[in-house]
Write a protein that binds this DNA or RNA. Structure first.
Lengths: 300, 300
DNA sequence: TCAACGGTTTTAAATAATTTAGGACAAGAA
DNA sequence: TTCTTGTCCTAAATTATTTAAAACCGTTGA
């Protein structure tokens, strides 16, 4: 009928813990102090105090409140299932779209999705509203939501946008101070790339993670909330598509490693034009890989 | 108690119109056909038919349904106030923040905002969820929303991001085909700029709109949903700040006109480096204007 | 005397319940 | 057989209700 009282339940248990460390007969701090301590409003504190009184753990009369006995395990109240946090929803949602290859223009049922992901409907709606800013989903005129999906257009525009952002990052990186923390990161990445190149015959699957780490490092020099927000989506999408398209995976990954190393070389040489050109080349490859993986999906 | 039936009300009135053009005794099309015609589901159609029968406008028995009399004006049902559309909400919300200079870290009351803007609470929540992707608002841990607001950091990051997008647009524009529709637009804008420059003593306020039109034209060559989405927010924010900061407005606008013309010159000459440099110069000015307007607000 | 604390009330946010709309399926008429 | 309607089920929109937060005010005790 109404909202859950999990906030109260959790607060009550924490209040029990609070009483456990006090000796019998000791006074409790004022309501406001307890609220601040537990991170909850006075209203909740008072509800908890009332229950503690009822359970005989404390005596409470106005300002006089002191511990009567130490709380037992039986005094605790069970709290409902832990709700999954917000960030995970994003991961799981994109995972669902990409892994099950949901086609574009699919109507999305908020009710069904909320059930599957085990989140409240309004949370999912909020999430979709956020995604709609990226053009990944849209509202339908009759109501409800629709997946605009990973069409060819989407992939092209995403890749183009990524190119713009990443070229900017590369340009900034070349100008970065010598003591910038990105340089050790790049050096470590260079080693990791060389190491993987040596084991490419057997471990080419490990490249996907390395790719993510590389682009993350490059973009780390750009301190911009808009860029950061986009990178999250971009990296997820490219990450999954890497895992998908199994055609010539070994060759592709070997080539990508070489491209990454070329970028690192140019960056460490502080050669802006060469770095830009290397990045452009790599993203061109990336884009065509993304597009070809979409074509495979269209056909199959 | 439940959702509004405005969809049904509107459909009913349109159904009346539909009957009015039929002669008395004529049969009505099947339910599905009516639904398609009016753009509504069969459920609604059947509700309307039931009411029409009750009102004696039609006779309805299974497949037999025909007009009994022409509908009168009294048959219509009044429909509730027209709900404002979604796009306007965005405008009005940003308008509110900027015009009333809501400080950063203000808690936003969904209930109050919904009242003021005369929209349903959940619509506003959806909207806020969308904005949170741009980092303009954020959820508070205890629940509710908070305006992160136009801090200095926000302005800097926004300007930087704008620079990245716009330099890309300029680069693309230089490469645009000679018959691209952007060229006539730029030519018209050049005239408009010259015209305003002549009247700058008295009509410098008109520049804000011209600025918007100029940047819109430049960005029109980039066909990218992500860029488009951002431009909407960017142009709104810069637009309002132009209107605010009244210090040296005339000189600033005159200077900006010159900067715009320099960009147009370089673009029409297809001189990529010069165009980029001119754009960079203009956006630098823009950024410092935005920042100084924020400083004024901090002090006052 | 005043500052801190608690009682009370007002208001908002979260969420379940309720109502309307959409769509699927089956049965029946043409 | 095919189109149409009757019926039912599910989902989305929207309100109502419950919980939480916060403001206000009186009172107590140092």
């Amino acid at each position: 009928m109404a909202r859950s009282d999990s906030r109260y339940r959790e607060a009550f248990n924490r209040m029990l813990d609070r009483c456990a460390v006090l000796s019998v007969g000791a006074p409790l701090p004022p309501e406001a102090a307890l609220g601040a301590e537990i991170g909850v409003s006075r209203t909740v504190v008072r509800r908890c105090l009332a229950r503690l009184t009822e359970a005989g753990v404390i005596a409470w009369d106005g300002r006089q409140k002191h511990v009567l006995r130490h709380p037992a395990a039986a005094d605790r109240i069970a709290l409902g299932g832990v709700s999954a946090d917000r960030d995970q929803l994003e991961q799981r949602f994109l995972d669902w779209i990409l892994r099950f290859d949901v086609p574009p223009d699919t109507p999305l049922s908020v009710a069904e999705l909320a059930r599957n992901f085990e989140v409240a409907q309004h949370e999912l709606k909020e999430f979709l509203a956020g995604l709609s800013r990226f053009g990944l989903v849209a509202r339908r005129p009759q109501g409800g939501w629709m997946l605009r999906g990973f069409t060819k257009d989407f992939a092209v525009e995403l890749s183009d946008f990524r190119l713009v952002l990443e070229l900017d990052a590369v340009a900034k990186l070349v100008e970065a101070a010598p003591d910038h923390p990105v340089w050790p990161r790049l050096a470590a990445l260079r080693e990791a790339h060389h190491a993987l190149a040596g084991r490419i015959e057997t471990e080419f699957h490990a490249f996907s993670k390395l790719d993510e780490a590389f682009h993350d490092a490059v973009n780390s020099v750009v301190r911009n909330r808009f860029v950061t927000e986009f990178q999250k989506v971009i990296s997820l999408i490219f990450h999954y598509h890497y895992m998908w398209d199994k055609t010539h995976e070994k060759q592709r990954n070997a080539a990508a490693i070489a491209e990454h190393l070329a970028i690192i070389d140019a960056l460490e040489a502080r050669d802006a034009p060469r770095a830009a050109e290397a990045a452009r080349q790599h993203l061109r490859t990336s884009k065509s890989t993304l597009l070809s993986s979409l074509r495979h999906h269209d056909l199959g």
